[in-house]
Design a protein around this nucleic acid. Structure first.
Lengths: 345, 345
DNA sequence: CTCACTTGCTGAAGGGAATCAGCAACCACG
DNA sequence: CGTGGTTGCTGATTCCCTTCAGCAAGTGAG
């Protein structure tokens, strides 16, 4: 199974066949022919030889010489969870590939030791840069050593604010949710379901800020908060309890789609219709939003966009400190009533 | 931001400080001291020097010399979709890391051109092996060049049967589902919901085979099939139509959790209770199964296990041709009635 | 004292590309 | 005919490690 090692074609072979020195061949194949005043005819011969011999440069040799690998490392706490990490990876991989880079992944499982080891492994392999991602949008402190290497944070910001980061514009997303409520005429008696479960997490607070801003500017106000962790179960329990206590919401802003699912279940069990009795708008724009009946109108976190943008910053030589906020767009569903009850996905 | 390149410590530096030759230092640090009859005292000095200088071997140089990179490439059609790909990656990464390997990923989006380019990029970088994964369990034909390099297929088998593969034991999983139905006394009037949506896909047929086998052996038989694509929407539509036509199932075997969700929605809208009126067992063991009310009893696809096992095969020098089937385990939920209505997740 | 072996180490040769410094050949000009 | 400049190319070195082949010194037997 091991390749029968027929000795790969080297730069020297190409040079020999073209009747030039390896130096010349190198310059030509690296596009420095003009700069080095190589004759057009010579260039043609070398390229032809490379083509005929099916020459592929030995990346390992080049890596050693240039200390460069056309490779970026991705450190993230959880690769496996939900589609989030996957989308971020996918977005990053696409942009990386376009510039000939590959992605090396490492999952820390939230363990600092593992994280440190992974960072070392990647730096040992001379990745050209590191993408540091978290599953939940949050403020974190990254390993010191990353400050000495090109690094871009995805979905998080570091406490010292030294490193460039790409995060969702959660406040803007909150405003979008608030505006959707206003547009559909369901802003009265709106409650927010969810509270930030993770210390350091940013999404909840910032989304709330945005929602309140939008409502307040239109002369409305939130009717209240129904706190719960961001899971289907917890949301169901919280909502169920609240409804049992006689609560009757006009609309619900759910901090994510899973909360919206739990909430929907509770509403259904109490005989309340969505969107007839209760309008729902939520956040995430996950597949789940398109699975529910009615489909959810959800303000999507642009995970793929974050990944893509982060790689762009790395490619551009990430100057440091700037935090870029990616706009959150609506995935229209039927949970607010009115138009598109089919959802966009 | 670029590291200020203080010239990394090299093997030579360590050797100099310990007063030995680089050769000796190399042998010692590579654990070949015994084999080379290096004196204990010398070994100590070298290790100490390495420690003091914080020596980290230059992997790029080693890579070049050994044509080995402690790196595996993962080619998969979709990295972003669902938690499946993520779990497989995660399982693979964990085992890989344990042996000092990192994973390089590449997403083909199902495009053969992209796939070919990614394979080339990885082989150029001399990955030590390739994991080739598909989102859906299926039979595929892999790029020819992979046959010349250590390769293990994850969640798929190749048409020629030349390459080692790790797939879920779908027939066994089907049996498990059938047995669950029997154990809970709900085997009578059981319909199967779903049909294989993708050409070449294996899961549906094999699951069905297992379910039928288990039922038949106990003197039961399936009451029928309700075909639909494997999505929430399609499942809802199919089930809703079937119920409108007056169908009344005693139990449903759903080909995956998304189908089960659509089915649950349809049952609810027709006033049928789970598990009271209709028992449900499904496949996948995804998070979704734990989100529904009642939670689903679902036969889980061991994605993480597949990834982990595939890397083990690669590490063991994958001998070729053997196809390993990983057992599918039950994630207990409440959809079959009886015990655990809380679910295991 | 010699020979054969063991112990403990080292020199030098790669691996394949990138790149600095420089050289030969030719031309033009005064 | 010497000088200076351009054109077009190349030799030698470097990146840092692994590893083959071999050598000097010590030991024990004969």
């Amino acid at each position: 199974m091991k390749s029968k090692s027929v000795r790969r074609v080297t730069l020297g072979d190409v040079a020999a066949r073209a009747g030039v020195s390896p130096t010349t061949a190198s310059y030509i194949l690296n596009g420095r022919a003009g700069e080095m005043r190589i004759a057009g005819e010579t260039e043609r011969r070398v390229r032809e030889a490379a083509e005929e011999l099916q020459y592929r440069p030995n990346r390992l040799a080049r890596n050693l010489r240039t200390s460069t690998t056309k490779t970026y490392g991705v450190i993230s706490d959880f690769v496996a969870s939900g589609h989030f990490a996957g989308e971020m990876l996918s977005g990053a991989a696409t942009v990386a590939r376009a510039s000939g880079h590959l992605l090396v992944i490492g999952e820390t499982e939230g363990d600092v030791e593992v994280e440190a080891r992974l960072v070392d492994e990647m730096l040992d392999r001379h990745v050209d840069g590191i993408l540091y991602a978290t599953l939940v949008t949050m403020e974190i402190s990254v390993p010191e050593v990353l400050r000495k290497h090109p690094t871009v944070l995805m979905n998080c910001v570091d406490t010292t604010g030294q490193l460039p980061a790409v995060i969702p514009d959660e406040v803007g997303g909150g405003r979008v949710a608030g505006e959707l409520l206003l547009e559909s005429g369901r802003a009265a008696g709106a409650y927010v379901v969810g509270a930030d479960p993770t210390p350091g997490a940013l999404a909840g607070g910032r989304r709330l800020t945005g929602v309140e801003a939008a409502l307040n500017e239109a002369g409305h106000a939130l009717a209240g908060m129904i706190p719960c962790e961001w899971s289907v179960r917890e949301a169901f329990a919280a909502m169920d309890g609240w409804l049992r206590d006689g609560g009757r919401p006009g609309a619900l802003v759910c901090m994510n789609d899973r909360i919206a699912m739990g909430v929907s279940q509770a509403l259904a069990e109490h005989g309340l219709q969505v969107p007839g009795d209760v309008a729902i708008v939520s956040f995430d724009g996950s597949e789940l939003a398109s699975w529910l009946r009615p489909t959810l109108t959800s303000v999507a976190v642009p995970y793929a966009g974050i990944g893509a943008r982060a790689v762009e910053l790395l490619l551009a030589g990430a100057a440091g400190r700037e935090v870029e906020e990616m706009p959150m767009d609506v995935v229209a569903g039927g949970s607010l009533g009115g138009g598109g009850s089919t959802g966009k996905r």
